[in-house]
């Protein structure tokens, strides 16, 4: 139990909070057909993070967060600009911007020798979920002990705050997000600016991406923006239910993925563990595949089966 608390729990928390923060926001990205905005944002923040690091000379978060946020906002404006000015479809405009920003980040990293200190591209992609430790924990009671809890790694606390913030924003702006996602024209005539709401969404996506990014890596972030929401989308036609299901799926992937990564190979008789971030994303993907095949109403196989039966009945 002690080992679990000290080594596994912080990683599980990290993975789960990251999954939850991204998974909830992802619902709106998927509904707005901006699923790849998550992908884009998690790439473009790299140069911002590097610059933030260069300015502050440490990997603690605030300057990096600010840099990342700035990079995200600049990129979104750039995409919009290219799309409008050049009359280019948004996918291509995104492609131009996110590859360029990521390339800039990569070159900055190598140029400045930051590569030696905690920051490198592999880290940015894969994260380092397993390095989170809570060595002060000795028993389950510590989970209720404020002082002990405060000794959890900074990243865990940070992600917790971010997840909470996202939850609050979604609850407060639920109506506005729903309206602007469904019918931006009506929103405009009712005085809810779709532009402001989309900017808010993008900023929240950037915040989630950056907070999760340093802990779990960009690939898990991208997966979590999409897979839980897509899974929920297969299962329901009600937005509030969709949000709830995506939250559950995020939790399941976070906890289940970590356990599979840490103990899966052991169960198979090997003495190593695999990338937890990777495994969480794979788990989320697997859940989505299940939903796409077997969802009660919209699943591929379910529908085939129903068609067959109604054909037989006739």
């Amino acid at each position: 139990m002690e080992i679990f608390l000290q080594y596994d729990l912080p990683s599980i928390l990290l993975g789960t909070f990251a999954a939850l923060a991204c998974g909830l926001l992802g619902n709106f990205l998927v509904l707005r057909r901006q699923a790849l905005m998550g992908d884009t944002i998690s790439h473009v923040v790299l140069p911002g993070i590097v610059v933030g690091f260069l300015v502050s000379h440490n990997t603690s978060s605030l300057p990096m967060m600010l840099g990342a946020g700035a990079a995200a906002v600049v990129s979104v404006m750039l995409i919009e600009l290219i799309r409008r000015l050049g009359n280019i479809e948004s996918g291509a405009a995104m492609g131009v911007v996110f590859t360029t920003m990521f390339a800039l980040g990569v070159v900055l990293l190598e140029q400045t020798g930051a590569a030696g200190v905690h920051l490198d591209v592999e880290h940015a992609l894969y994260g380092n979920l397993e390095s989170a430790l809570w060595l002060e924990a000795t028993s389950l009671n510590d989970l209720l002990d404020w002082h002990k809890l405060m000794l959890l790694p900074d990243e865990v606390k940070q992600l917790f705050v971010v997840t909470l913030l996202i939850l609050i924003v979604i609850v407060v702006f639920y109506k506005e997000f729903k309206l602007t996602s469904f019918d931006p024209l009506l929103a405009t005539t009712l005085g809810f600016s779709p532009k402001i709401m989309s900017l808010l969404l993008i900023v929240m996506v950037a915040v989630a991406a950056v907070a999760a990014f340093t802990a779990v890596g960009s690939i898990l972030v991208i997966a979590m923006f999409i897979c839980p929401a897509a899974t929920a989308r297969m299962l329901t036609d009600k937005l509030s239910t969709q949000l709830f299901i995506s939250g559950v799926v995020s939790l399941l992937s976070g906890v289940g993925g970590y356990i599979l990564a840490a103990f899966g190979p052991l169960w198979l008789g090997y003495d190593f563990s695999v990338s937890a971030a990777g495994m969480i994303a794979v788990t989320a993907g697997a859940l989505q595949v299940l939903a796409m095949l077997f969802a009660p109403r919209y699943g591929i196989l379910t529908r085939r089966w129903q068609q067959k039966h109604s054909a037989l009945a006739n």
């Binding site: 992908d39 992609l125 897979c227 990777g278 794979v282």
Partner: peptide, 19 residues
């Protein structure tokens, strides 16, 4: 939709590669 499909495939495949 296609964007969701692309996102799903790219992240899940890449994550599998990481594992």
């Amino acid at each position: 939709t296609e964007d969701t499909a692309i996102g799903t495939v790219l992240s899940t495949f890449f994550a599998l590669g990481m594992v």
